[in-house]
Amino acid sequence: SNCAIALYDPERQVSVLAVDYLAGEGIRRFPLEVSFADFAHVLRQLQRGQLCQLSNFHHPCWPNHDRYTLIIAPICDKRDLTAQHEELLVLGNICGSRPPGQIFTEREQQLIQRVAGQCAIAIRQARLYQTIQRQVQQLQELNQLKDEFLHMVSHEMRTPLTNMKLAIGFLSKANLTERERRYFQILEMETNRELELINDLLELQALESGNKVLRLTCLSPQEWIPNLCEPFRLRAAQQGQQFQVEWDPDLWLLCTDESLLSRVVSELLNNACKYTPTGESIYLSVSQANSNGRPGWLITVRNTGVEIPAEALPRLFEKFYRLPQLDCRNAGGTGLGLSLVQKAVELLQGSLRVESHSRQVMVQMWCPHQGSLSETPSKA
């Protein structure tokens, strides 16, 4: 005739009615708290995981019934304290009643215990979800604080370094001795390295925070590829490397963020120039490719004379991860370049693949056309 579920509040030492069902009236919710001290003798039995049955019982929660038979099942969760000892954590109870003189059959007792078990699972899952939500919120707040800190510190450091670089440029034009000029070169190199680190941190922060907005333009391969490659062609020639570029003459125009795509390809070519030994080759190829019916460009950067260890491949895109043993020119770096590449490719909705074997490294990037799927990009 009656059923109620109560949850325990150990800190306040009270049992709080969660929901009450009365035959003929349906589900009711109203605030009711009962001190643990008021049912201490029953509570002790429930805390041992045992079922309680009471007869000729009166409870203020059900004023329409002066006396009745009551059954109470504990809602228990198990906590493993050690391998030998297991403690029951009683979350609350579920109780049912019927008129005095009637009893609950063994089947009904089993039923209410099964319902109590299901309640325990639901409560555990709900509380676990709440805990995870709180932890996620805390992590988001910490991540936001980290981003704000990096942004503030990077800006504060970039201003004096920019002024230092300007002053170094003026001073380097003075009549200097060979020894002074060497010191100025070291100073200029280290200043540029710090500026590069700060700029990379700011760029990475913008990509990770989601504040980077794509600025879409249509790229013509005949214009974009030669302009992008010319500095690397000169650099390769100075370092005694062979630099080859090829692209499909039927390549479509590509609608994408030119600045972001240029940053990605420049970083890949920069790594190729940095790690390729003298006398070896660097290749850049651009071809038309489709993925899941979506058109785009497949951009491949390949260099010879060097091989990335198999155990290092999974870590290539980690922040600050470097392979100094492959840096034959001791060019150094921030270790953020490939992390930037990965985040930028994600923002461009593309994909990235790296292979290394037979003393060569190949990086392939697929960059999709950013128009609608029903829109076909025109030929260059």
Rank of each mutant, 00 (worst) to 15 (best):
G101S: 07
G101V: 04
Q102K: 09
Q102V: 02
F104L: 06
F104M: 02
T105K: 00
T105I: 01
E106Q: 08
E106V: 01
R107T: 07
R107F: 03
R107K: 08
E108Y: 04
E108A: 04
E108N: 00
Q109V: 01
Q109K: 09
Q110S: 04
I112D: 01
I112Q: 00
Q113W: 02
Q113Y: 01
Q113F: 03
R114G: 00
R114V: 02
R114E: 05
V115S: 02
V115N: 00
A116D: 02
A116W: 03
G117I: 01
G117R: 06
G117Q: 08
Q118G: 02
Q118M: 10
C119R: 00
A120E: 03
A120C: 07
A120H: 04
A120R: 02
I121E: 14
I121M: 11
A122R: 06
A122H: 03
A122Q: 07
R124Q: 13
R124S: 11
Q125T: 07
Q125I: 05
Q125S: 08
Q125F: 09
Q125A: 10
A126R: 11
A126P: 00
R127T: 13
R127S: 12
R127C: 12
R127Y: 13
Y129A: 15
Y129K: 12
Y129I: 08
T131I: 10
T131M: 13
I132Q: 13
Q133M: 09
Q133H: 10
Q133P: 03
Q133F: 09
Q133L: 12
R134D: 14
R134F: 10
R134P: 03
Q135E: 15
Q135G: 05
Q137H: 11
Q137M: 10
Q137S: 14
Q137V: 03
Q138R: 13
Q138Y: 09
L139A: 13
L139V: 10
L139Q: 15
Q140P: 01
Q140D: 13
E141K: 15
L142V: 05
L142A: 10
N143Q: 15
N143Y: 07
N143F: 07
Q144I: 03
Q144M: 12
Q144P: 00
Q144T: 09
L145A: 14
L145R: 15
K146A: 10
D147S: 14
D147C: 09
E148I: 06
F149L: 13
F149M: 11
L150S: 05
H151A: 10
M152R: 15
V153R: 13
S154H: 08
H155Q: 15
H155G: 14
E156C: 03
E156T: 05
M157R: 09
R158T: 06
T159L: 09
T159V: 10
P160V: 02
P160F: 06
L161W: 04
L161N: 00
T162Y: 06
T162E: 10
N163R: 09
N163T: 04
M164T: 08
M164S: 03
M164F: 06
M164K: 05
M164I: 14
K165A: 07
K165Q: 09
L166S: 06
L166F: 06
L166C: 00
A167F: 09
I168H: 05
I168P: 01
I168M: 09
F170I: 04
F170M: 10
F170L: 14
L171N: 10
L171Q: 08
S172W: 02
S172F: 04
S172D: 04
S172L: 03
S172C: 04
K173H: 07
A174M: 12
A174L: 15
N175L: 12
